[in-house]
Design a binder for these strands. Structure first.
Lengths: 238, 238
DNA sequence: TAGTGGTCTAGACCACTCG
DNA sequence: GAGTGGTCTAGACCACTAT
């Protein structure tokens, strides 16, 4: 009367987990295809997929849509309160960072933007969408939303660098305070596309609002992280 | 030439999402069973389950193992840096908090406990496991790990209240600094059992370490949240 | 004991990526 | 064009919950 000896699912998960822990499967290495795995484990693709999804939830593997499954590299430690910007943070952890500009548009604040910026009247804003890579892998989709009035002609600047640095250099704005929310949820379609996720896969969403030295609200930002790629680290002393 | 008109999956998801947004389905209300839904939508249980899992990832619904699917209530805002303890935080948001003691044990620090407490020699510790409820729903499993030497006879105290308060009242210890990590991952078996999750379902794990007024490490804590139940909120000013 | 979700089989077609 | 994961069908048995 063993309570449920070992399910097929645990058998598959344990085997793959061991292969990863013992580094037979290296970081970022591709797993065999679902069809191959289902032959190797003598089961169906559905069962294999259930096992893979479960390991994905654990943060051990990830997938690129229609490309395959891969072993997750170590998580990046991310301290949203630190002054350090993305490229510096990644470099400090001996990883390689890249940023690609996706799109820029200007419109009037509405919906989630108006709410996040705490504006009610008609307020022109700029929205900058960027995609960020670690070791060549797209892991972070960022949407920045700036009050246009505070940033004349910012769209003529190079936008793949740190915006915070740009704020300081060109406008003399320094972030004095920030507030942010961390929410486990699923990827909206445009985010999923950019990160090579399929619709509805999990992401870690971080919404932040920055205030400048005089306390005025500066900009807000929506970050969508691949959940296996990151771990948030906060120290109340800092 | 529409690119993928609308999948079965989106059709189901959108319908259920609408019913929830329009409050035809109320918070914490049970959805029809998977079999009923598969008849209603004229499809198979697998497809229904895929749709439900996707809505679960989004944070819109949750499940109780082998009991059914339910509509998620509003997320609790949780600021791990605030001085407020669990019951107070929940009350402040007009919800009802409960705490149940699961188990207490004393042993020598090893593995993750030794690492988190930053001890190397043989160190006696107490481990307290508790389950926390919001509006009657089990949403948080907490494991506290205390250096026994700092807390003589603490196990004779009532342990369903705030430990932080107990530290202050009986030992004069005040948390001066804390450090924590937020990690999206999956539930270990004992946690899954306690939260009525099935093995491998997602949780938001928070590992924290507290230091008292003289800078000495006081205790560490492992929190496992149902991911739809919470949103982490940090303000750098606080 | 009836009903639920959890697991599993054995297929199929499609949209997309890659060489 | 070959191969991948994404979606879907039509069933089945089991472990567990609720009553």
């Amino acid at each position: 009367m063993f309570s449920h000896a070992t399910t097929q699912l645990s058998r598959i998960k344990n085997t793959i987990r061991e292969q990863i822990n013992s580094e037979i499967l290296a970081e970022m290495q591709k797993l065999p295809s679902e069809r191959e795995l289902s032959q190797l484990f003598d089961t169906t693709r559905i069962t294999i997929k259930d096992a893979l999804v479960s390991l994905e939830t654990e943060g051990l593997i990830y997938r690129e849509e229609r490309r395959g499954w891969y072993v997750s590299p170590q998580r990046i430690c991310y301290n949203p309160l630190s002054r350090s910007h993305f490229h510096q943070m990644i470099n400090d952890q001996n990883r390689i960072a890249e940023t690609k500009l996706i799109s820029v548009r200007s419109e009037m604040a509405a919906g989630k933007y108006a709410a996040a910026l705490e504006v009610e009247g008609i307020t022109p804003i700029h929205i900058i969408e960027r995609l960020r890579f670690i070791d060549g892998r797209a892991v972070l989709f960022v949407e920045n939303c700036l009050k246009a009035a505070l940033f004349p002609s910012i769209l003529e600047q190079p936008l793949t660098q740190s915006l915070t640095q740009l704020y300081a250099k060109h406008y003399g704005y320094h972030t004095q305070r920030s507030r942010f929310d961390v929410i486990p949820t699923s990827a909206p379609l445009n985010v999923a596309k950019a990160l090579n996720l399929s619709e509805g896969q999990p992401v870690l969403k971080i919404c932040r609002v920055n205030y400048k030295q005089d306390g005025e609200l500066l900009d807000c930002e929506f970050e969508y992280w691949r959940p296996d790629a990151v771990m948030i680290q906060i120290d109340s002393r800092a």
